[in-house]
């Protein structure tokens, strides 16, 4: 699928593509954040048949409607593709030896073969934490690995 990008001097950018069914669709991104969705004429592919203007909030909602199902789709496909891969959210409980330790000090991957790909802290999500990331009580670690590896991480984190 080819997406064509065109500069509109003084206005912003236009992206357009031809769908599998032969219709041309475009999105104009104005510098002030407004978006126009453009449908092209079937008989004259250079002319617009309809233009819909979206405010920044509206375009975000439309983007979510179009994009969100695709993300879950991709995730489930990933799980199907990589059989035997386990993902789990593991909490740091109060009294864990790793409260206040860094990810590097815990050396989780070296000891279990499983990786910490993200940490959920309250409402916040920290993707790919660096080795100097410091654990706190109630952090939830998103761990990916073999099921044995993931189970080993669980035992390690909360070994009293």
């Amino acid at each position: 699928m080819d997406v064509e990008e065109t500069r509109l001097p003084g206005i912003g950018l236009r992206h357009d593509l031809v769908t599998a069914q032969g219709r041309r669709v475009g999105v104009i991104s104005q510098r002030n954040g407004a978006r126009h969705v453009v449908l092209y004429d079937e008989r004259d592919p250079d002319a617009t048949a309809a233009t819909i203007e979206l405010t920044p909030e509206e375009s975000e909602v439309v983007a979510e409607l179009l994009g969100a199902p695709r993300i879950t789709e991709r995730l489930s496909r990933l799980r199907e593709q990589v059989e035997g891969l386990a993902t789990e959210g593991l909490p740091i409980e109060p009294g864990s030896p790793y409260v206040g330790a860094t990810l590097g000090e815990a050396a989780i991957r070296t000891r279990t073969g499983a990786s910490v790909v993200a940490v959920v802290r309250g409402e916040e999500m920290i993707a790919s934490p660096s080795p100097d990331f410091r654990f706190q009580v109630e952090d939830r670690l998103v761990v990916v690995g073999t099921s044995d590896g993931v189970a080993a991480v669980g035992r390690l984190l909360n070994a009293h």
Partner: peptide, 11 residues
């Protein structure tokens, strides 16, 4: 006509 394909040429 901002979306028209001749518009970049005009601008």
């Amino acid at each position: 006509r901002l979306g028209n394909r001749e518009t970049p040429a005009v601008l």
